[in-house]
Amino acid sequence: MTIILLVVSGLYALFTTVLGFTWRSMLPFRSAATVAPAGPAITVVIPVRNEAENIENLLNDFSHQTYTRFEVIVADDSSTDSTLAILYQFAQTASFSLRPLPLSNERTASPKKRAITQSIAIATGDLIVTTDGDCRVGPEWLATIASFYERTGAKLISGPVTFTREKTIFDALQTVEFASLIGSGACTMALGVPTMCNGANLCYEKRVFAEVDGFAGVDHLASGDDELLMHKIAVKYPAGVHFLKSPLAVVQTNAHQSWRGFYNQRKRWASKWRAYKSYLPSVLAVFVFLSNAAPMVAVGGWLLGFLNGNATLAVIGLKLLPEFLFLRQILVFLQKKSSVWVIPLTQLVYPLYVLFFGLAAQGKGYSWKGRNLN
């Protein structure tokens, strides 16, 4: 048992160290001072349901974009609050093209994929940029995406996402955990084996969406409008998936304020693992699961007398130290230095978190936006 635990922990330490060096080797993107007026036409697609408390803040952010060749389509998925009324009212005086798209209340396996697909069908932009109704974006967001696209010719661009507030320990824990996903996804893209991205800050060519037949083949899953689409594009364009490492491209969203909301979101994310066509993301998920279980097994073995103290400390150290150094880099980039001190606490609870959601993902069904989905 000792050898197995040390091997698993040693491989995880190597993996995390590689991620750390990869992140450092990724030079921050510095966009041009101005983007050519004839730059790419962008359609921002925002699927929403019951976002009356948040949507106007995001729309105001679009009023301040320095890049002006864009339109916004907000696909309202049968909101039961005043979301749609706010959209129509804002559209009357908006300084940009705002197109509310009311969707029918028909039952569908993936409401978000339906919203995005119907929005793209009427989009006039060459680039599709997606975000969520509870997000906030900076004034240089679209300009940075357009400049990066012109510089790289990427088929899909994944951008950084973080949380808006860190008022409680729960907020900070979510910030650290989310940073690990963003950083890992960015590094695997840089290594040419993309695994994760986030639909709150995603861009892809409209024609490429059509080339890979959109969400066909994965439209039976409620989740996966980001990662599963990215995997399809990566198969057709192996060198076409890029991460936009720029502070100007960071999108902020709200951390969950309740355990139930957090649970349903993470279960929704975990549910798409079963649909991965490539073995790599699944193997990586299992590897992370085992790596997080190793310290718990080691401590249990030490308490029961099966493992000596030095071996237990080695297993724990191989997990914690490289991981801390990697997460610190990501948090500093996301301008979340205040959450660095929470990394050790996150490392303490994360093994339990991984085990819990790894098992929870095996069951079907969760609640999202007032609906029960599979």
Score class of each variant (00 low, 15 high):
Arg165Trp: 01
Ile122Asp: 02
Ser291Thr: 06
Arg30Trp: 07
Ala270Asn: 14
Arg207Pro: 01
His220Ala: 14
Glu106Thr: 14
Lys113Asp: 07
Phe62Thr: 07
Lys112Leu: 08
Tyr88Phe: 13
Leu352Thr: 07
Tyr366Thr: 05
Tyr67Ser: 06
Ile233Gln: 02
Ser119Glu: 00
Ala172Ile: 01
Gly300Met: 04
Thr130Phe: 02
Thr131Tyr: 00
Leu19Met: 13
Arg151Ala: 13
Gln347Glu: 12
Ile145Thr: 00
Asn50His: 05
Asn292His: 15
Val137Arg: 02
Leu345Asp: 08
Leu58Met: 08
Asn201Thr: 04
Leu103Lys: 01
Asp219Leu: 01
Ser223Asp: 15
Ala179Ile: 02
Thr124Asp: 04
Ala190Thr: 01
Ala255Lys: 10
Ala75Asn: 04
Val8Leu: 12
Thr2Gly: 05
Ser25Val: 08
Ala200Val: 06
Gln347His: 10
Glu227Ser: 12
Leu359Pro: 05
Arg114Ala: 10
Arg165Glu: 11
Arg151Cys: 04
Asn60Arg: 14
Asn50Lys: 05
Gln347Val: 07
Ile128Ala: 02
Pro28Ala: 06
Ile120Asp: 00
Gln329Leu: 11
Ser31Cys: 06
Ser246Leu: 09
Lys113His: 08
Val349Cys: 11
Val283Gly: 04
Gly309Pro: 09
His220Trp: 13
Lys112Gln: 10
Arg30Gln: 14
Ser119Cys: 03
Ile120Gln: 01
Leu103Phe: 07
Ala94Thr: 10
Glu56Asp: 11
His256Leu: 12
Leu318His: 04
Asp219Glu: 14
Ser339Glu: 12
Val212Met: 06
Phe170Pro: 02
Leu325Glu: 03
Ser110Ala: 15
Leu84His: 13
Thr162Val: 01
Leu325Tyr: 08
Asn372Arg: 13
Asp126Gln: 11
Pro194Ile: 00
Leu318Gln: 07
Lys369Phe: 07
Trp269Gly: 10
Arg268Ala: 14
Gly240Lys: 11
Leu229Gly: 10
Asp76His: 06
Ser246His: 08
Ser119Ile: 00
Asn264His: 15
Thr346Lys: 10
Arg69Phe: 08
Val349His: 09
His256Glu: 14
Leu221Thr: 09
Ala285Tyr: 11
Asn201Leu: 05
Gln257Asn: 15
Gln362Asp: 02
Thr312Ala: 09
Ser9Pro: 06
Phe326Ser: 01
Leu5Tyr: 08
Thr66Ile: 10
Val72His: 00
Thr43Gln: 02
Ala32Asp: 14
Val286Met: 14
Asp126Thr: 09
Leu348Met: 11
Gly217Gln: 10
Cys197Asn: 08
Ala41Leu: 09
Trp368Gly: 02
Ala123His: 00
Leu87Tyr: 08
Val286His: 12
Ser180Pro: 00
Arg165Ile: 05
Thr312Glu: 03
Arg260Ile: 14
Val251Ser: 12
